[in-house]
Design a protein around this nucleic acid. Structure first.
Lengths: 139, 139
DNA sequence: TCAATAGATGAGAATTAGTTGCAACTGAAC
DNA sequence: GTTCAGTTGCAACTAATTCTCATCTATTGA
């Protein structure tokens, strides 16, 4: 439960980043989130947990945590940015355009092909973004 | 030259969309653009051509043209949306993170893999987004 | 060719999502 | 405890885009 959040706190402290009440609260909220909430939603959840964090601090903290590699930012088409814990293996996203549901997936062959394409043109990949906007078959 | 723009005008008219002075001007600007300009840049180019179009109309027209399938919207990480003529074969984008340069590419194998992945999970792809953020090797 | 009108435009206000300045706080180290 | 660089809250700000509404105009039909 708070276990993962505690580990993350330690990682921050080790990196010389202060663990304030607000940051600890947000780490807990993020660790407890199975979905991909945006800043406003994280703020709501933190408040619901009695955290006492301003929205500005939520934004600042998200940026900080991203810099520390603790979370990742997702920017789907035309919605506010969403966030997810980064302590997982790399994956891409499939977004159901009807329900908004987000499904994660990985495919090594695609990863390899991407690297090949970049290499062929004299580049190396810094990062990428692959999103499949999908609809249930047979709807 | 203005040839393609004229053909696009006819397509719009056929679709029951009015071809106003402003829309015609923007079609010309877009047809003449080899790069991937954003709304402000298209406005600038239209003004430079003596078009007399407001920025609000540029935005409105871009949305209209997108709906008509004449242009496509690109939303790279954290920049204003860019646009490109849609009368080409489908392709994805590689963005040089150092220079901002955009390179187009296609790869049938990746396309096929994407469709397979979606199908395996019971979905069909409505559209997708694949962007490689890259850096020149050796740079 | 002209009148009628549904649809388009311009100007600026409004909205959305996120950022920033600054004075008041507070972890963490000593 | 004291210190102080780093952090926070609030409100003001910014950037990109959308909206409102009074005024125009491309197209249709006579």
């Amino acid at each position: 439960m708070g276990n993962r959040a505690t580990r993350l706190e330690q990682a921050l402290r080790d990196a010389g980043v202060r663990v304030t009440r607000q940051r600890a609260a947000l780490l807990r909220v993020i660790a407890a989130s199975e979905d991909h909430p945006d800043a406003a939603e994280l703020h709501r959840r933190a408040e619901a947990a009695g955290a006492g964090v301003s929205l500005a601090t939520v934004y600042r903290t998200l940026t900080t945590l991203q810099t520390q590699g603790v979370i990742e930012k997702l920017e789907f088409q035309g919605e506010p940015a969403r966030w997810e814990a980064a302590d997982q293996r790399h994956h891409d996203h499939m977004i159901d355009v009807d329900t908004g549901e987000v499904v994660e997936f990985t495919n090594d062959r695609i990863e390899r092909l991407q690297a090949e394409i970049a290499a062929e043109m004299g580049y190396e990949i810094v990062h990428h973004r692959l999103e499949l906007y999908v609809r249930r078959r047979g709807g």
